[in-house]
Design a protein around this nucleic acid. Structure first.
Length: 274
DNA sequence: CGCATTTCCTGGAGGC
DNA sequence: TGCCTCCAGGAAATGC
Protein backbone atom coordinates (compact mmCIF):
# COMPACT_ATOMS: atom_id res chain seq x y z
CA UNK A 1 0.00 0.00 0.00
CA UNK A 2 1.60 3.22 -1.09
CA UNK A 3 2.48 5.57 1.73
CA UNK A 4 4.84 8.55 1.70
CA UNK A 5 8.07 6.71 0.76
CA UNK A 6 6.39 4.77 -2.04
CA UNK A 7 4.77 7.93 -3.39
CA UNK A 8 8.05 9.85 -3.10
CA UNK A 9 9.87 7.08 -5.00
CA UNK A 10 7.33 7.32 -7.81
CA UNK A 11 7.48 11.12 -7.86
CA UNK A 12 11.29 11.10 -8.14
CA UNK A 13 11.09 8.71 -11.08
CA UNK A 14 8.33 10.64 -12.85
CA UNK A 15 10.08 13.95 -12.32
CA UNK A 16 13.21 12.56 -13.94
CA UNK A 17 11.36 10.66 -16.65
CA UNK A 18 8.75 13.19 -17.71
CA UNK A 19 10.77 16.37 -17.67
CA UNK A 20 8.62 19.13 -19.18
CA UNK A 21 6.79 16.90 -21.61
CA UNK A 22 3.74 18.16 -23.49
CA UNK A 23 0.58 16.07 -23.30
CA UNK A 24 -0.44 14.71 -26.66
CA UNK A 25 -3.39 12.57 -25.71
CA UNK A 26 -5.24 11.07 -22.76
CA UNK A 27 -7.46 8.01 -22.75
CA UNK A 28 -9.87 7.34 -19.91
CA UNK A 29 -11.12 3.77 -19.66
CA UNK A 30 -13.12 4.24 -16.44
CA UNK A 31 -14.50 7.71 -15.97
CA UNK A 32 -15.61 7.12 -12.37
CA UNK A 33 -11.95 7.03 -11.37
CA UNK A 34 -12.03 10.80 -12.00
CA UNK A 35 -13.17 12.12 -8.65
CA UNK A 36 -13.64 15.81 -9.29
CA UNK A 37 -13.23 18.83 -11.47
CA UNK A 38 -14.27 17.52 -14.85
CA UNK A 39 -15.62 14.60 -16.79
CA UNK A 40 -13.65 15.62 -19.83
CA UNK A 41 -10.16 14.94 -18.54
CA UNK A 42 -8.58 14.52 -22.00
CA UNK A 43 -10.01 17.85 -23.10
CA UNK A 44 -8.38 19.54 -20.14
CA UNK A 45 -5.03 17.76 -20.44
CA UNK A 46 -4.28 17.71 -24.14
CA UNK A 47 -1.88 20.44 -25.21
CA UNK A 48 -0.78 21.29 -21.69
CA UNK A 49 2.81 20.92 -20.58
CA UNK A 50 4.11 19.42 -17.36
CA UNK A 51 5.94 22.03 -15.31
CA UNK A 52 6.87 19.80 -12.38
CA UNK A 53 5.85 16.69 -10.47
CA UNK A 54 5.22 17.23 -6.77
CA UNK A 55 4.30 15.11 -3.79
CA UNK A 56 1.83 16.35 -1.18
CA UNK A 57 1.36 13.77 1.55
CA UNK A 58 0.41 10.65 -0.38
CA UNK A 59 -0.79 12.63 -3.39
CA UNK A 60 1.05 12.94 -6.67
CA UNK A 61 0.58 16.25 -8.42
CA UNK A 62 1.34 16.91 -12.05
CA UNK A 63 1.70 20.67 -12.20
CA UNK A 64 0.67 21.93 -15.62
CA UNK A 65 0.90 25.01 -17.74
CA UNK A 66 -1.24 26.92 -18.37
CA UNK A 67 -2.04 26.83 -14.65
CA UNK A 68 -3.60 23.48 -13.77
CA UNK A 69 -3.09 20.42 -11.64
CA UNK A 70 -3.69 16.75 -12.22
CA UNK A 71 -3.62 14.94 -8.88
CA UNK A 72 -3.35 11.18 -8.40
CA UNK A 73 -4.03 9.26 -5.20
CA UNK A 74 -2.99 5.61 -5.35
CA UNK A 75 -5.29 4.36 -2.59
CA UNK A 76 -4.51 0.75 -1.78
CA UNK A 77 -3.57 -0.82 -5.06
CA UNK A 78 -2.94 2.09 -7.43
CA UNK A 79 0.09 2.17 -9.66
CA UNK A 80 1.38 5.05 -11.73
CA UNK A 81 3.95 3.83 -14.20
CA UNK A 82 5.86 5.17 -17.16
CA UNK A 83 5.85 2.53 -19.85
CA UNK A 84 6.69 1.97 -23.46
CA UNK A 85 3.62 3.05 -25.47
CA UNK A 86 3.53 -0.38 -27.09
CA UNK A 87 3.70 -2.32 -23.83
CA UNK A 88 0.63 -4.55 -23.37
CA UNK A 89 -2.19 -2.88 -21.49
CA UNK A 90 -2.75 -4.59 -18.14
CA UNK A 91 -6.24 -5.09 -16.74
CA UNK A 92 -7.62 -2.30 -14.54
CA UNK A 93 -5.65 0.36 -16.41
CA UNK A 94 -8.00 3.32 -16.06
CA UNK A 95 -6.04 6.16 -17.64
CA UNK A 96 -3.30 6.47 -20.24
CA UNK A 97 -1.51 9.76 -20.90
CA UNK A 98 0.65 10.13 -23.99
CA UNK A 99 3.30 12.75 -24.57
CA UNK A 100 4.68 14.59 -27.56
CA UNK A 101 8.25 13.72 -26.64
CA UNK A 102 9.54 10.20 -26.29
CA UNK A 103 9.32 9.96 -22.52
CA UNK A 104 6.99 6.95 -22.53
CA UNK A 105 3.34 6.67 -21.66
CA UNK A 106 1.97 7.37 -18.19
CA UNK A 107 -0.49 4.72 -17.02
CA UNK A 108 -2.74 4.72 -13.97
CA UNK A 109 -3.85 1.29 -12.90
CA UNK A 110 -5.85 0.50 -9.78
CA UNK A 111 -7.69 -2.83 -9.39
CA UNK A 112 -9.38 -1.97 -6.10
CA UNK A 113 -10.19 1.57 -7.16
CA UNK A 114 -9.65 3.17 -3.77
CA UNK A 115 -7.45 5.61 -5.61
CA UNK A 116 -8.52 8.32 -8.00
CA UNK A 117 -7.68 11.33 -10.11
CA UNK A 118 -8.55 14.96 -9.51
CA UNK A 119 -8.14 17.79 -11.97
CA UNK A 120 -8.19 21.49 -11.28
CA UNK A 121 -7.76 24.54 -13.41
CA UNK A 122 -5.96 27.42 -11.81
CA UNK A 123 -3.75 27.58 -8.75
CA UNK A 124 -3.77 25.82 -5.39
CA UNK A 125 -7.06 27.41 -4.33
CA UNK A 126 -8.94 25.14 -6.73
CA UNK A 127 -7.29 22.11 -5.23
CA UNK A 128 -8.29 23.14 -1.75
CA UNK A 129 -11.93 23.20 -2.83
CA UNK A 130 -12.08 19.56 -3.84
CA UNK A 131 -9.65 17.70 -1.59
CA UNK A 132 -9.28 17.64 2.17
CA UNK A 133 -6.54 19.85 3.53
CA UNK A 134 -3.42 18.06 4.67
CA UNK A 135 -1.42 18.34 7.86
CA UNK A 136 2.33 19.03 7.82
CA UNK A 137 4.38 16.56 5.80
CA UNK A 138 5.67 13.62 7.83
CA UNK A 139 9.03 13.54 6.04
CA UNK A 140 10.05 16.86 7.55
CA UNK A 141 8.02 16.85 10.78
CA UNK A 142 9.92 18.45 13.69
CA UNK A 143 9.49 18.00 17.42
CA UNK A 144 7.82 21.34 18.21
CA UNK A 145 5.17 20.82 15.52
CA UNK A 146 4.51 17.25 16.64
CA UNK A 147 4.21 18.41 20.24
CA UNK A 148 1.53 20.87 19.20
CA UNK A 149 -0.30 18.09 17.37
CA UNK A 150 -0.09 15.72 20.34
CA UNK A 151 -1.84 18.23 22.57
CA UNK A 152 -5.08 17.24 20.83
CA UNK A 153 -5.16 14.03 22.82
CA UNK A 154 -6.44 10.88 21.05
CA UNK A 155 -4.49 7.66 20.71
CA UNK A 156 -1.13 8.38 19.12
CA UNK A 157 -1.55 5.93 16.23
CA UNK A 158 -5.03 7.21 15.31
CA UNK A 159 -3.59 10.72 15.35
CA UNK A 160 -0.64 9.85 13.10
CA UNK A 161 -2.91 8.09 10.59
CA UNK A 162 -5.13 11.16 10.19
CA UNK A 163 -3.92 12.91 7.02
CA UNK A 164 -5.39 16.21 8.13
CA UNK A 165 -3.18 16.07 11.20
CA UNK A 166 0.06 14.74 9.70
CA UNK A 167 0.30 13.79 6.03
CA UNK A 168 2.03 10.81 4.48
CA UNK A 169 1.93 8.13 7.16
CA UNK A 170 -0.08 4.94 6.69
CA UNK A 171 -0.29 1.69 8.56
CA UNK A 172 3.23 0.39 7.93
CA UNK A 173 5.17 3.50 8.81
CA UNK A 174 3.16 4.42 11.90
CA UNK A 175 3.87 0.94 13.30
CA UNK A 176 7.55 1.18 12.37
CA UNK A 177 7.94 4.71 13.75
CA UNK A 178 6.17 3.93 17.03
CA UNK A 179 8.29 0.80 17.49
CA UNK A 180 11.46 2.78 16.80
CA UNK A 181 10.42 5.43 19.33
CA UNK A 182 9.27 2.76 21.81
CA UNK A 183 5.78 4.19 22.13
CA UNK A 184 2.65 2.03 22.35
CA UNK A 185 0.14 2.84 19.56
CA UNK A 186 -2.69 3.25 22.09
CA UNK A 187 -0.88 5.77 24.31
CA UNK A 188 -2.81 9.05 24.68
CA UNK A 189 -0.84 11.55 22.62
CA UNK A 190 -1.45 14.30 25.16
CA UNK A 191 0.15 12.21 27.91
CA UNK A 192 3.44 11.63 26.11
CA UNK A 193 6.51 13.30 27.61
CA UNK A 194 8.19 15.98 25.50
CA UNK A 195 11.23 13.74 25.16
CA UNK A 196 9.12 10.92 23.76
CA UNK A 197 7.46 13.17 21.21
CA UNK A 198 10.84 14.52 20.18
CA UNK A 199 12.12 10.97 19.74
CA UNK A 200 9.00 10.08 17.75
CA UNK A 201 9.52 12.98 15.34
CA UNK A 202 13.08 11.79 14.78
CA UNK A 203 11.95 8.19 14.29
CA UNK A 204 9.33 9.19 11.72
CA UNK A 205 11.86 11.16 9.66
CA UNK A 206 14.50 8.43 9.93
CA UNK A 207 12.19 5.56 9.00
CA UNK A 208 10.67 7.40 6.04
CA UNK A 209 14.06 8.50 4.74
CA UNK A 210 15.46 4.99 5.08
CA UNK A 211 12.52 3.57 3.13
CA UNK A 212 12.83 6.14 0.34
CA UNK A 213 16.50 5.21 0.08
CA UNK A 214 15.49 1.57 -0.48
CA UNK A 215 12.82 2.41 -3.02
CA UNK A 216 9.78 1.96 -0.75
CA UNK A 217 8.19 -1.22 0.57
CA UNK A 218 6.57 -3.74 -1.75
CA UNK A 219 4.20 -5.71 0.45
CA UNK A 220 1.33 -6.46 -1.86
CA UNK A 221 0.52 -4.12 -4.69
CA UNK A 222 2.96 -1.28 -4.71
CA UNK A 223 5.48 -1.03 -7.55
CA UNK A 224 7.95 1.69 -8.45
CA UNK A 225 7.26 3.84 -11.51
CA UNK A 226 9.27 1.42 -13.65
CA UNK A 227 7.24 -1.53 -12.34
CA UNK A 228 9.99 -2.98 -10.14
CA UNK A 229 9.69 -3.75 -6.43
CA UNK A 230 10.95 -1.72 -3.51
CA UNK A 231 13.04 -3.26 -0.74
CA UNK A 232 11.95 -1.65 2.51
CA UNK A 233 9.76 -4.59 3.54
CA UNK A 234 12.99 -6.50 4.18
CA UNK A 235 13.99 -4.01 6.83
CA UNK A 236 10.60 -3.72 8.56
CA UNK A 237 11.15 -4.36 12.24
CA UNK A 238 7.59 -4.97 13.49
CA UNK A 239 5.13 -4.65 10.63
CA UNK A 240 4.00 -8.09 9.47
CA UNK A 241 6.06 -9.86 12.14
CA UNK A 242 3.20 -11.12 14.34
CA UNK A 243 4.34 -13.99 16.57
CA UNK A 244 8.01 -13.55 15.67
CA UNK A 245 10.59 -12.46 18.22
CA UNK A 246 10.99 -8.72 18.74
CA UNK A 247 14.31 -7.73 17.18
CA UNK A 248 15.15 -5.70 20.27
CA UNK A 249 14.08 -7.84 23.24
CA UNK A 250 13.04 -11.22 21.85
CA UNK A 251 9.50 -11.29 23.19
CA UNK A 252 6.83 -12.09 20.58
CA UNK A 253 5.43 -9.28 18.43
CA UNK A 254 1.69 -8.92 19.00
CA UNK A 255 -1.00 -7.93 16.54
CA UNK A 256 -3.81 -5.80 17.91
CA UNK A 257 -6.56 -3.68 16.33
CA UNK A 258 -6.15 0.08 16.53
CA UNK A 259 -8.34 2.56 14.65
CA UNK A 260 -9.61 -0.35 12.59
CA UNK A 261 -6.11 -1.25 11.42
CA UNK A 262 -4.05 -4.29 12.25
CA UNK A 263 -1.26 -2.98 14.42
CA UNK A 264 2.04 -4.59 15.28
CA UNK A 265 3.56 -3.93 18.65
CA UNK A 266 6.11 -5.24 21.14
CA UNK A 267 4.36 -4.94 24.50
CA UNK A 268 7.71 -5.01 26.32
CA UNK A 269 9.55 -2.36 24.29
CA UNK A 270 6.40 -0.27 23.84
CA UNK A 271 4.69 -0.32 27.24
CA UNK A 272 1.15 1.00 27.44
CA UNK A 273 1.74 2.43 30.92
CA UNK A 274 4.11 5.38 31.14
C1' DC B 1 -15.39 16.50 20.17
C1' DG B 2 -13.43 11.37 19.98
C1' DC B 3 -13.79 6.85 18.44
C1' DA B 4 -15.61 2.63 16.55
C1' DT B 5 -17.92 0.84 12.63
C1' DT B 6 -19.20 0.60 7.87
C1' DT B 7 -18.54 1.37 3.03
C1' DC B 8 -16.10 1.18 -1.23
C1' DC B 9 -13.23 -2.85 -4.17
C1' DT B 10 -10.47 -6.93 -5.94
C1' DG B 11 -6.76 -10.35 -5.77
C1' DG B 12 -4.60 -13.57 -3.14
C1' DA B 13 -4.49 -16.89 0.56
C1' DG B 14 -6.27 -20.58 3.07
C1' DG B 15 -9.77 -24.17 4.16
C1' DC B 16 -12.22 -28.07 2.64
C1' DT C 1 -8.57 -28.66 -9.11
C1' DG C 2 -12.24 -25.74 -7.74
C1' DC C 3 -15.20 -23.28 -4.88
C1' DC C 4 -15.98 -20.65 -0.93
C1' DT C 5 -14.85 -17.25 2.68
C1' DC C 6 -11.95 -14.02 4.57
C1' DC C 7 -8.66 -10.45 4.70
C1' DA C 8 -5.70 -6.40 3.46
C1' DG C 9 -6.61 -1.01 4.10
C1' DG C 10 -6.99 4.95 2.61
C1' DA C 11 -10.39 7.90 3.33
C1' DA C 12 -14.98 9.41 3.91
C1' DA C 13 -19.45 8.76 6.01
C1' DT C 14 -22.28 7.28 9.83
C1' DG C 15 -23.66 6.32 14.51
C1' DC C 16 -22.99 6.72 19.40
Amino acid sequence: MPELPEVETIVLALRAGLGRARILDAIVHRSDIIRSGTRDLPGRLIGRRIVSVEREGKRIKLMLTPDGQCIFHLGMSGRLTLERPRAPLLSHTHIQIRFASRVGELRFRDPRRFGGVWFFDGGPRGAAAGLASLGPDALTIRAPVLRGICRRGRGIKALLLDQQVVSGLGNIYTDESLFDARIHPLRRASELADGQVGRLAGSIRKILRRSIDSGGATLRDYRKADGSEGAFQRICRVYGREGQACLRCGSPVRRILVAGRSTHVCAVCQPLEA
